[in-house]
Design a protein around this nucleic acid. Structure first.
Lengths: 221, 221
DNA sequence: GCAATAATCATCCATCTGTTTGATTAAGGC
DNA sequence: GCCTTAATCAAACAGATGGATGATTATTGC
């Protein structure tokens, strides 16, 4: 052994070597990556700590354990989500923005999908997101009555379809790669895809004109 | 203890009490449910065995362990998938059928999404599914040239969006519930949603006529 | 400078989890 | 009716994992 001691990280001048804020942030970032990649059950606290470059005990120290860390990230997402939601922009911009959020923070987006699929966690949405979504449904319904959307479509279903489509690069990365080539994960592709979705939404809006009146409400049981 | 021995399952007359086929099937079914609900990392071998009503050792006996069991299910999915894919039906029917597959076997559908999001497994798609998807892209492109699809849309992106939308009830069950109410998980809703998606696809097709030629290829970098 | 405190670390520990082992027994051929 | 074989099970095992303990040391207020 040439190096008896792993050289303790020498703090750059002006940089504290103990910095709770920085440590917390590092842990959160690392956790986002790990949870995002493997989900809650698949992620390992040791891996998170290693990635953050800190002792794993600090996860208990700062967040009260794996679960607390996960919860903290979920809260963090709710804030991001609220920002995405708050601005009342036209639908095409909303969908595109949602798609692009995967660009700014892909791990967080992945995390949200894991959470969405997992049965155990998040006792219940605060209702905040639910409210926003239902407001969007109402908005869509108004546009539909104004003729911007074919009359035989259920606004709720359209909105659900759009959100799912916006999440595509996150929820179905492999399928995306199979359809669009290996570059499907690249930032450029995500931008391209977001733009395409916005166009698609606009086309849906246009097509309201030519929508044959048809059976105004068929389907379902 | 009133019952010294848990009464060994009495075989109904004409029913063997040892039946490898049956046992294998029971394990596979149970595994589908557990893996579908919690993903590979979250599922527990004990839970699978309990659900199947067999000793957990049989999982090693029949499938060589947890991983082997998972692999077996993935193969099983590939067959189902191939069936869904093979019939060359119009796009709206394809999308609706894909959506409805969640109805026939929701757990399997969930399993596929977990697999799609997980980094580690499935060394690579056999290419079979990839082939099918790219053939669909080509088909879409032809229809586009025939004027059935707005000229400024990228067929690959449209296909990806449609597949993601078709998977919505599986990938975003919570969001679905938030948008469409608690019934979002019910069979009736899935049917309704599939119908709606088919309509949406048809509207996209129609709107090809009114699609302003616009910039034939804008966006991206 | 010095003491108090907060941040960090190395080590240990209980528990959980997937797999292995070895015994038991139903099924099927002779 | 035996005897081999394959199916099943109960118990034990080894490794991993998340969390706890106690010691160490930087930071800060004085």
């Amino acid at each position: 052994m040439t190096t008896g001691q792993p050289p303790r990280r020498r703090p750059n001048p002006g940089e504290r070597q103990r910095d709770p804020e920085r440590t917390r942030a590092r842990i959160l970032d690392a956790a986002k990556v790990e949870f995002g990649a493997k989900g809650f059950a698949g992620a390992r606290v040791s891996d998170i700590a290693d990635r953050a470059g800190v002792n794993k005990q600090l996860i208990s120290y700062y967040f009260g354990g794996k679960e607390g860390l996960y919860t903290e990230l979920n809260n963090q997402w709710q804030q991001v989500s609220a920002q995405l939601s708050s601005a009342d922009q036209p639908l095409d911009a909303l969908v595109a923005g949602y798609t692009l959020s995967a660009l700014h923070d892909r791990d967080m987006a992945r995390l949200m999908v894991w959470a969405n699929m997992s049965p155990t966690d998040a006792p219940a949405d605060t209702g905040q997101e639910r409210e926003f979504l239902q407001a969007q449904v109402e908005d869509l319904r108004r546009r539909q009555e104004a003729g911007e959307l074919p009359a035989d479509l259920d606004p709720a279903c359209v909105l659900l379809a759009l959100f799912a489509a916006a999440s595509a690069t996150v929820t179905l990365p492999r399928t995306a790669a199979a359809i669009c080539g290996a570059a499907a994960g690249s930032d450029d592709f995500v931008r391209h895809y977001a733009d395409q979705l916005a166009r698609l939404v606009r086309h849906l809006g246009n097509s309201g004109a030519d929508g044959r009146p048809g059976s105004q409400r068929d389907g379902q049981a």
